[in-house]
Design a protein around this nucleic acid. Sequence first.
DNA 1: GCGTCCTGCATTTTT
DNA 2: TGCAGGACGC
Length: 684
Amino acid sequence: MSENFLLSLNDSQKNAAQHIDGALLILAGAGSGKTKTITTRLAYLISIGIDPASILTLTFTNKAATEMRERAFSLIDSSIVHTPPLLCTFHKFGLLLLKFYMSELGRKNNFIIIDTDDKKRILRSIDKELPLPLLASEISKYKNSILSPNEAKATAQLKLYQEIADVYEKYENYLEKNNLVDFDDLLLLPYKILCNNEKLAEEISQKYNYIMVDEYQDTNELQYKLLRKLCATHNNLCVVGDDDQSIYGWRGATIKNILNFTDHFENTKVVKLEENYRSTNTILNHANQLIEHNRDRLGKKLVSTREDGNSVRVYESHDENEETRKIVDDIKNLISNGERASEMAILFRVNALSRSLEEGFNKSGVAYKLVGGMKFYERAEIKDLIAYFRILTNNNDNFSLKRIVNKPKRGIGKTTIEKLDAKSAQTQKPIFQLVEELEPEELAQVVGKKNSRTLKVFMASIMDLKEALEESKMRFLDLFEDTFDYRSSYDNAPDGFDRQANIDEFYGYIRDYFIQNPHLGLEDFLNEIALESENSEFTEEMVSMMSIHASKGLEYKHLFIIGLEEGFFPIIGDGSDIEEERRLGYVALTRAMDNLTLSFVHSRFYKGKRASLTKSRFLSESGLIKGCLTLEKNSAYKKGDLVKHKIFGMGRVQKAVKAGKEYKLTINFAGQIRDILSSFVEKI
DNA sequence: GCGTCCTGCATTTTT
DNA sequence: TGCAGGACGC
């Protein structure tokens, strides 16, 4: 095996890729060859004789895992590698551990993974009053902070949080009783197992002697603690991330993990990748200027390896229609000049802004695709089919049974289900078992004669299908389609065409799965797709539109960012964090390779109202337009503020003491400390 | 049990 | 403005 793969790396990349033992923090700026570096490191470790089975690489998304796997495996000499190294998402890794060690928690390993939608349904069934989004996110927070329901109750001060903690307890009981796990459990339960069984924790830690984590700035408390457990017997943790691109704080990611990495792990080596191969120098300069306004950062300056290129354009429009017109015209021009639509994208902070864009694109006939939105496996029709399959693999899955017992409509409504539920609770038996064991007359006493018969027929169909499944998976699928006629229940539905297309695709997909994996069963299929999102192809010649969050990791030759208005971007108020908004801005700007256009409007139609708007502070902060000083002139100063002085240039306030109407400031101008009165500087 | 009307609500999203 | 979920009537 050759080690030529190291030759295409720059010095810092090489330095990181050839690091073997001990903690390593790779601070990789946008477009600095992050993936290249860690996939090369993976190949390098294997090339020097480290057992591939002892290397674990964790990512956040399936997409990242797939991409890395492809790139890493292309570097590895497959003839000498018998076991490929494990490279998967955090959640997948958790799932693997649970499949092996669930019994440590006294639970069976035939659990079912529920998604966010299932979770919300369960929560709603437990509590009808509390707002769902709050419930769901608070419970998630508890789990990610490793707080048990009792601990949550103990810490809850307000009545509201007492109530939430109560729901949390009931929710956990429900999950355990039905042997369900939510996404948080895929991390939390393995962590608990490793805490309870120190010997096992050591064993697993020794097994994975080299661990790499991608997008470390997005890890949360629980992931950090899990990593600590995995590193119980060694210090060989290599993490890659960019503190300036941490944009998931709102869902529990804590930037502290990356900021404090060197304190968390002893003798950490730090490698910075600061050469950007993506954007023109001009684009990068504006991005750098913007992110300079943040205080909570490790400090890193991306340097472009490219020429200046075109200047960044700023579009000012009266309203969203004018904005759309300008962008559509630009894109038409680009296309007629031979540029590829797939190399263009429009980004926005708020999904709602896509509406006027879509209208404009539809009118003009320019092909576009909206990235994000409803995932394939989240569609009701697909989830229904999955629920059917789940019952086939596990009759006692009450949760799935209730979902489809009346799909297609069989006359089993809410009240009947409630009666069954009550009986199930009373007898401590799953609903399916009740239907199976009770004599028709007995069952009729619970749900009435007609329903009793319907349920018996339903149960018999399931049993028949189970039998068919044991004989042949393909015959089973045919029989399944015939038995329930689920597809044709959408025959006359308004959105039936799309839904049936999805159903066909799903049937095709599962058939293909069984052809590709003849030795695997339905249960394997279900586990496989539980953590899978869409694998959409990016090859079509279309302009992409997406949220800035969705654009992370992507790059476009021609990029437009719309909605640069205060309130839209940055979002201000309640839960928003201006530094995270700014990081989002930084992520957005650094998606652009050659041409970048930012756009703001004076008025926008939103939530049923037309609002007048002022342009985003990010435009001035990134040096694209002159800042409006009047607003900030008399405002308060504090440590960390960035200021500009006519002679000394930019500086950062180290100390601010109020002196009458103004402030006495101690300012650091590129190393020179000076005391200046605040009326002599401008706040940036 | 099922279809229809109406009210309330509206960053960002992966697993 | 647009949509999802709840209330209500048949």
